[in-house]
Amino acid sequence: SSGGSSILDRAVIEHNLLSASKLYNNITFEELGALLEIPAAKAEKIASQMITEGRMNGFIDQIDGIVHFETR
């Protein structure tokens, strides 16, 4: 797709992000992006959206560029 990722790509990214949230206590956007094979800024945006929508527990430290995952 030309304008970003398809629905399937997005679903795969979100699935992998949720998997990462179970493996890590926290991770930088750079590391997360590398893990998900997407730019760091996109990793931040998707993580932020999932947390806001209540689909993933955690919070974002924008100063240090880190996602902190919280286990249920």
Rank of each mutant, 00 (worst) to 15 (best):
S2A: 12
S2F: 04
G3N: 12
G3Q: 12
G4W: 03
S6P: 13
S6G: 11
S6L: 09
I7A: 14
I7L: 11
R10H: 10
R10D: 14
A11F: 10
A11K: 09
E14M: 07
E14I: 08
H15G: 10
H15A: 15
H15S: 13
N16K: 15
N16H: 11
N16E: 08
N16Y: 13
L17N: 02
L17S: 01
L17K: 00
L18T: 05
L18G: 03
L18K: 05
S19P: 00
S19C: 14
S19Q: 14
S19V: 15
A20K: 06
A20G: 03
A20L: 15
S21I: 07
K22Y: 08
K22M: 09
K22V: 07
K22F: 09
K22G: 05
K22T: 07
L23E: 07
L23Y: 09
L23V: 11
Y24F: 11
Y24P: 01
Y24V: 05
N25W: 08
N25V: 09
I27E: 00
T28N: 05
F29C: 02
F29I: 08
E30P: 05
E31P: 00
L32F: 03
L32R: 00
L32I: 03
G33Q: 03
A34D: 07
L35A: 04
L35S: 02
L35V: 06
L35G: 00
L36I: 03
L36R: 00
L36C: 04
E37Q: 15
E37A: 14
E37T: 08
I38P: 00
I38N: 00
I38C: 04
P39G: 08
P39Q: 05
P39V: 05
P39C: 05
A40C: 05
A40V: 07
A40R: 06
A41K: 10
A41E: 14
A41R: 09
K42L: 15
A43E: 00
E44W: 14
E44I: 15
E44T: 09
E44P: 01
E44N: 07
K45I: 12
K45L: 14
I46L: 08
A47E: 00
S48D: 07
Q49R: 08
Q49M: 08
Q49S: 08
Q49E: 15
M50F: 04
I51K: 01
I51W: 03
I51C: 03
T52L: 14
E53P: 00
G54A: 04
R55A: 05
R55I: 07
R55V: 06
M56R: 00
M56Q: 01
M56P: 01
N57G: 10
N57A: 12
G58E: 01
F59S: 08
F59L: 06
F59M: 07
F59I: 08
I60K: 00
I60P: 00
D61P: 01
Q62M: 12
Q62W: 15
Q62Y: 15
I63W: 07
D64H: 15
D64R: 15
D64E: 15
G65M: 07
G65E: 06
I66C: 06
I66R: 15
I66G: 04
I66M: 10
I66N: 04
H68I: 10
H68R: 07
H68C: 07
H68P: 01
F69P: 01
F69N: 01
E70P: 07
T71D: 10
T71G: 10
T71R: 11
T71P: 12
R72E: 10
R72L: 11
